[in-house]
C-alpha cells in the first residue's frame, strides 16, 4: 500500500514536470510573447511600440531570459511557496488560486451534499426493483439528466428561476447562499444521473448474486437482506465513483462557473488560459493534477478497506 501511494505520487510529479515543461517551452515562442503583449497593453499600443520598449516590457514581465532559466526559477520559487505573479491580474498566483479553490470548494460541498444522498437512494431503489416500473422511471430520468449538457441545464434553469420567476439571481456574483443555488442545481442534475446509474448497476448485480439468494433463503426479512447484505457489497463501486467526481468537479465545472460568472477554479483556469497567463495556468494545472491523483488514491484505499477480500488477503 505504501508502495502504491509512493508510486502514485511519483507518477504525479512526473506528469507535473512534463506538463509544466511543455507549457514553458510553448510559451517561449516570440509569437506567443507578442500575443501576451497585445493582451496586456492592447493591440494598438503594441503596434506603436519600439523594439527597445518591447524589450523593456519583456524584461518587466521577466520574459527576456531563456525559458529553461525561467523554468528553473519558477521551480525554486514553488519550493519557497511562491507560485509567481499573474500577468493579467498582477496579483500573487498563490492568492488567486487559493481564493478560487475555496469558492469551488463551497460549490463542491453543496453539490456533494445533495447529489450523494439523492443518487444513492434512487440508485439503490432502482437496483433492488430491477426491471420494474420504478426502476424504469428512475433509469429514464437519470439518462435524460445526464445526456443534457450542463450548459443546456444551466440555460433552462436560468430562464425558469432567474429570468422567468425571478426567484434567484442569474449571475453568481455574490457571497450569499442564493447565488450558488443555480450552479449547484445544474451540477447536481447532471452528475446525479451518472452516480445513480452506477449505483443501480452495482446493486442490481449484487441482487442476482448467490450470496443474496442465500440470505433470502435463510429466511431473514427482506429489509435486512437489503440493508445488511446488499448495500454493504453494492456500495463499494459507487464509493469509488463518487470520490472520483471530486476530480470532475474541479476541472469539469468550467462551463457552469463561466456561465454563472462564478469566480471559482474553473473560471480562473479558463481566463488564464485565454489570456496566456502562464503562472496561473501552471499553478492551476498543478492543483488539478494533485486533486486527480489524490482522489484516485483515496478511492483506491477506500476500495481496499471496504473490501474484506482485498483487505485480508
Amino acid at each position: 500500500m505504501v508502495k502504491l501511494i509512493l508510486q502514485r505520487l511519483l507518477q504525479m510529479a512526473l506528469i507535473m514536470a512534463v506538463v509544466s515543461f511543455v507549457l514553458f517551452l510553448v510559451f517561449d515562442s516570440p509569437k506567443f510573447k507578442k500575443q501576451l503583449a497585445v493582451n496586456d497593453l492592447g493591440g494598438f499600443a503594441v503596434a506603436t511600440l519600439t523594439q527597445s520598449d518591447y524589450q523593456a516590457w519583456l524584461a518587466a514581465k521577466g520574459l527576456n531570459v531563456p525559458f529553461y532559466e525561467r523554468y528553473g526559477n519558477w521551480l525554486v520559487g514553488i519550493a519557497h511557496g511562491d507560485f509567481g505573479r499573474s500577468f493579467q491580474k498582477n496579483e500573487d498566483v498563490g492568492f488567486l488560486l487559493g481564493r478560487a479553490l475555496v469558492k469551488t470548494g463551497i460549490l463542491a460541498f453543496w453539490v456533494f451534499a445533495l447529489m450523494i444522498p439523492l443518487a444513492l437512494v434512487t440508485g439503490v431503489f432502482a437496483g433492488i426493483s430491477e426491471g420494474r416500473v420504478q426502476d424504469r422511471a428512475i433509469t429514464f430520468m437519470s439518462v435524460v439528466f445526464t445526456s443534457i449538457p450542463e450548459i443546456a441545464t444551466a440555460i433552462i434553469l436560468t430562464v425558469i428561476f432567474a429570468l422567468g420567476l425571478g426567484w434567484l439571481p442569474a449571475k453568481s456574483k455574490g457571497d450569499g447562499l442564493e447565488y450558488i443555488i443555480l450552479p449547484v442545481l445544474t451540477l447536481v442534475l447532471y452528475d446525479f444521473g451518472y452516480v445513480a446509474r452506477m449505483t443501480r448497476a452495482s446493486v442490481a448485480e449484487v441482487m442476482t448474486s448467490q450470496y443474496i439468494r442465500t440470505a433470502v433463503l435463510k429466511g431473514i426479512p427482506y429489509r435486512r437482506v437489503v440493508m445488511k447484505h446488499v448495500l454493504r457489497n453494492a456500495l463499494i463501486a459507487p464509493f469509488t465513483v463518487i470520490v472520483l467526481q471530486l476530480n470532475w468537479l474541479l476541472s469539469g465545472v468550467v462551463v457552469v462557473e463561466v456561465f454563472f460568472q462564478y469566480d471559482g477554479f474553473g473560471k480562473l483556469l479558463l481566463d488564464a488560459a485565454l489570456f496566456g497567463d502562464l503562472y496561473v495556468v501552471q499553478a492551476a494545472t498543478l492543483a488539478a493534477v494533485l486533486v486527480a491523483v489524490l482522489s484516485q488514491l483515496i478511492s483506491d484505499i477506500g476500495y481496499t478497506f471496504l473490501n474484506p477480500r482485498i483487505r485480508f488477503s
Binding site: 448467490q210 450470496y211 439468494r213 442465500t214 433463503l217 435463510k218 429466511g219 454493504r232 474484506p308
Partner: peptide
C-alpha cells in the same frame, strides 16, 4: 431457513464476502 434449508454448489459464492 428454518423448516427447509438449502446447501449450494459453490460455497464461496454462497457466502456474503463482506
Amino acid at each position: 431457513g428454518s423448516q427447509i434449508a438449502m446447501v449450494y454448489q459453490e460455497p464461496m459464492a454462497s457466502l456474503n464476502p463482506a
